[in-house]
Structure formats: C-alpha cells, structure tokens
Amino acid sequence: MCALILFGVLIARRLEYLIGIYAVLLTCAYLLRIPLKELIQRNLVLVLVFVVPLSLPAIFVAIAGGTPLDSWGIFSVHGIQSFLIISTRALCAISLVQLLIATMGVPEILRGLLQLRVPASVVSLFSTMWSYLHVIGREAHSMASSLRARTISPTGIRRAYAILGVQGSVLLQNCVHAAEATHRAMLARGFNGSYGILPKSQPVGARDVVAIVGAIMLGFLGYL
C-alpha cells in the first residue's frame, strides 16, 4: 500500500492534491500514535537540507522562464508552482518512508526489499549493519561503564579528547574482530555469498484489497 501511495505521490500534478496526501499521512501517523511534532520536524529538516537548495533556483524567471509574478520580472509563477510541488512531493515521500520505518520491523522491511528485487548482497549488508549496530552499542556502553568504574575524570579538554580518541580506536578494533568472527561463523554454516531469506506466505485479505483499490484510486485522482 505504501508503494502505491508513493506512486500516487510521484504522479500527482496538483499542489492541493499533494497537500491532501500529506494530511492523510499525518492522520495515519496520529492514529498510529507516532509523535506528530517530531515527525514534522524531521520531515522539514530533510526537505530544507536536501530538496530546497536544489529546487529553489526554479523560482526565478531567469531559470524557469514563464510569466513573471512581479513587476521587476524576477520570480516566475510557473517556477514557484514547480518549486512548491517538488518540495511537497518530497515531503510526502519522506514522511511515508518514516511512517513505514516507524511502524514495521526491520526483518519485514528487509524481506520487502528482497521482494522488490533489491540485490541480496545489499540486503545482507543492511541486515548485518543493523545487527552490528547493537553489538557496537553494547561494546561502547561497556567501555564507557568501565571508564566510569575506574573513576577517570579528565582534567582538561585535551585529556578528554585523548580518552575519546583511544576509546574510538579500541571500539573500531573490537568491531573489526567481531566482523571477522561473524564471517567465520557464516562460512562454517555454508555461506556461499548469497543471503537466503525464508519465504513467508501472507494471504491477501479483504483489508488488503480495500487498501490496494483505495491507493490506486488515490493515485489516479491526483493524476487527473
């Protein structure tokens, strides 16, 4: 369903329709008890950092052409419309991805990526990274606890940076050792370079049919 809404987002040509989709997504987030304030903040940060700098030049007549908005002929009506549509479209796509990540388990997302024909090696990489984030986190936590237990309190900024640097390098070494051990464990269990995944049969129910039909209609309404 997410893929279909994304399809709707991509083909929508009218700003008001995209704003409508964003409102639907925020309603979904509210119903799923995701904190709206943080979701909107994160969406806006990503749009402002990555999308606006690239699409902002389109508002100028010199770049986008078309009818000027003002008497000096600086801003283009068509350019401003394009800028708003691109930014809102990105806002919808980003919030959709965040909604997906916030409401689904990582294994399900990885399974979905495999079914979307993302190369198995890439999925394997994501999976291993995700597993090891926790191992690294635990390692870092135990190192910090050990440091506290020995009551080392840095007496200056240079000393603090030195300790931080040593900890970082030791953590890196530990991670390399852990990765080597994991690779050996994979080899011992017949690893041949491909990351297999268990099939999971999920019968399509009435709820899914309604969701798919609704999403298709939503998508085409935006195109019209």
Partner: peptide, 8 residues
C-alpha cells in the same frame, strides 16, 4: 554474539 547475525 559473533555467531548470531540474522535479524530474527
């Protein structure tokens, strides 16, 4: 910990 690397 080194032996367990899959998501579930």
């Amino acid at each position: 910990d080194a032996q367990l690397f899959c998501p579930t």
